[in-house]
Design a protein around this nucleic acid. Sequence first.
RNA 1: GCGGGUAUCGCCAAGUGGUUAAGGCCCCGGAUUGUGGUUCCGGUAUACGUGGGUUCGAGUCCCACUACCCGCCCCA
Length: 413
Amino acid sequence: MIKAQRGTKDIYGDESVVWQWIFENAKTVFQNANFTEIKTPIFEATELFNRGVGDSTDIVNKEMYTFSVGGADKNATSITLRPENTAGVVRSYIEHNFNRQSPPQKFWYFGPMFRYERPQAGRQRQFHQAGVELFGIKDATADAEVIITAINFLKSLGLNDLEIELNTLGCPKCKNDYRNSIKAILAPYLEDLCDDCKMRYEKNPLRILDCKNENCKKIFETEEIKEVILKDYICDECKEHFEELKNYLNELNIKYSINKMLVRGLDYYNRTVFEIKSEALGSQSAVCGGGRYDGLVEMLGGAPTPAVGFAMGVERLYTLINKPTPQKIDFYVVSTNIKEAMKLTQELRQNNKSAEFDMQKRKFSKQLEKASKISKYAIILGEDEIEKGYYSLKDLSTGEQKQIKSFEELINF
RNA sequence: GCGGGUAUCGCCAAGUGGUUAAGGCCCCGGAUUGUGGUUCCGGUAUACGUGGGUUCGAGUCCCACUACCCGCCCCA
């Protein structure tokens, strides 16, 4: 038997109904905030992710679905299934000269992403992200706007008490100073760090701060190192930006905590970074991650453009929310006169009511039994009803039954 | 890429070398020939992840593979 590929899954039945509900909430909340939907292709030139996501990242180094199309042709191109969507949106932004429109330009998206990772709870190879990207605003108002939009989306799903972790990485210069200082102070301790941290030391030193290894954590507690970690390398301008953001969040009554260890794994972030986590997710605890990426548009060939955004993991949202109970259909037409049942069902559907009838031509009691399982009301269409021209409407939750004289009355019930 | 666990009908699940692999849910039919949800009776199904091996005999023991779950890493 051919099975779904590892790390992928079919979404159907009640689960699909919940997914639709999540999508509708995303659409409503994002569009209320004046973000417009952008659908970019599932695959892009590999080069886009190499440059956009960054070739020091695990995503680019070992997790991309990359293949070449065009066979042996000299013009064969290397394409990659998108592992995230920011690079694609930025590509589109540049390609269509969105910078010629007045800022801010605000986009939202919802769709599948692909990473070749070892699947586990909250982690699949094909997964979905809902997110927003906001271009053209340097001010911290944009950071606040993006964060409040994330909060509003979570609230719409009934997730009210997830707290935000916030940090600032500073501009490229601050980031660089910080990185060099961390490297310098840790150099003598390098041998004592875990193997992962030794690798991070070369590749992405800031990620060392995120290490969960107990021994490493202990090393970070020593006075001279702690001092460097906590010391501010953030320049005045970046500091002011961060203060401004915190003020806005306070005004908006958004709870957050500062986590100086929060360092995100994608190369393009600068200044503001944030995550929203939940213990309930287990080890893959982040349901949302985002931040500012002022250099990315320029790096991919566009005009210098400040930008900020976030992405939510839809599968992770799914595990957190209280699932709404699936709705029953409006009407089930119960009749042994199959033609009349068919006709009435069609008329109901044309009047925007969900309706079903028994295609198996089963006996009356079986039809009613089925109706009670999937429908709110049964419309009984027997010989008497057809002859005299009325409908018997039975409320299947209470058992109450009444006569309805006209079709208009029926659909307005 | 590294470590640990699991795998029996659509779902849950008994089974610890010996007829024909329990049971429950779901589904279908009957009791009830135009009134469901309760109850009772009956019924369907290509179920032992895949491939080898040991044995007179394997769902059960051994080996390999695959998938899923849980951690590490990374990320949403």
